[in-house]
Computed example of a mutant assay.
Amino acid sequence: MVCPQFVLFGDSITEQSFRPGGWGSALADSYSRKADVVLRGYGGYNTRWALFLLDKIFPLQSSKPPLVVTVFFGANDAALLGRSNERQHVPLLEYKENLHRIITHLKNCSDSMLVVLITPPPVDENGRSQYARATYGESAVELPERTNETAGTYAKSCIQVAIESGVPVIDLWSKMQETVGWQQKYLSDGLHLTPEGNALVFEELLKILSERGLNFVDMPDDFPHHSIIDDKDSQKSFQGRK
């Protein structure tokens, strides 16, 4: 039996998700022998650059497209013009259009594919400034390259795209800020996730998967558990498995 694929498509927050305590590694562990979790995260990428990857990662002619794809972009698109990371900036309307193009492409790959959008997380501007000084010294730019207000605007646009496209969305920007002290609890450098932040993404994603009948408890194993293999006639236990 060939396991279905879950592809995690996004920027550095996705790329880092297979690190210890990451939401991707938690997903791979939970769906062991149920689904193959494939990491396609690209640090520093915005939705404009992500469009160039679609045909390469998700070819339309694939005979076995992914069952689930998470699309997690926006943290870089929301970088501010005139600041240190302005080359990553994508205007808000273009960001929305790019998300629509990504979703359309994925739906053209498979009309049964579950596409899950994830909004950019909130930004702890003080945490970003502290990270910049620790990394680049006191000469680091004082003005943050991202603000929480701008991240929230992109998050709201991501939600709008999800509604317009009829796909589920994890509103990470709002969900994290429901917790007092979210800045230190969920963010390691004002932007990227702590183990607790990763756990929140995993929990929210698991809710959506479960609602769509894809809870790992209910999905079949690829091959039989060792305890049910007939040691007298092992071949019988593998009949019908492809």
Rank of each mutant, 00 (worst) to 15 (best):
Ser165Leu: 02
Phe73Asp: 08
Val116Arg: 09
Pro91Ser: 13
Ser174Pro: 02
Asp171Asn: 15
Glu164Trp: 04
Ala79Met: 14
Gln183Pro: 02
Trp182Ile: 03
Asn98Val: 13
Arg128Asn: 12
Thr70Val: 04
Tyr95Glu: 05
Gly166Arg: 06
Asp111Gln: 14
Glu145Cys: 13
Arg101Asp: 14
Val115Ser: 10
Ile102Ser: 08
Gly166Asp: 12
Lys107Asp: 07
Ser174Gly: 00
Cys158Lys: 05
Gln184Leu: 08
Asn126Thr: 10
Leu191Thr: 13
Tyr186Ser: 00
Leu172Ala: 09
Glu138Thr: 03
Ala79Tyr: 02
Glu203Ala: 01
Val90His: 00
Ser165Arg: 09
Glu196Asn: 00
Leu80Tyr: 13
Glu142His: 05
Trp173Ser: 01
Ser139His: 06
Lys156Thr: 08
Thr104Trp: 04
Ser129Gly: 03
Thr135Tyr: 07
Gly127Ser: 01
Leu200Cys: 01
Tyr131Gln: 15
Glu97Asp: 15
Glu149Phe: 05
Lys185Glu: 04
Asn108Pro: 12
Gly190Ala: 08
Ser84Glu: 15
Arg146Leu: 14
Glu145Ala: 15
Phe202Arg: 01
Pro122Gln: 08
Ile170Met: 04
Val167Arg: 05
Val167Ser: 06
Gly197Thr: 00
Lys96His: 11
Leu117Gln: 04
Ala134Trp: 00
Val69Asp: 03
Glu178Cys: 07
Gly82Thr: 12
Trp182Thr: 01
Lys185Trp: 00
Ser110Cys: 14
Glu125Asp: 06
Leu80His: 00
Arg128Gly: 02
Glu94Ile: 09
Gly127Arg: 10
Ile102Leu: 10
Glu138Tyr: 02
Lys107Glu: 12
Gln177Leu: 08
His100Leu: 14
Asp124Pro: 02
Met176Gly: 03
Arg83Leu: 12
Ala134Lys: 09
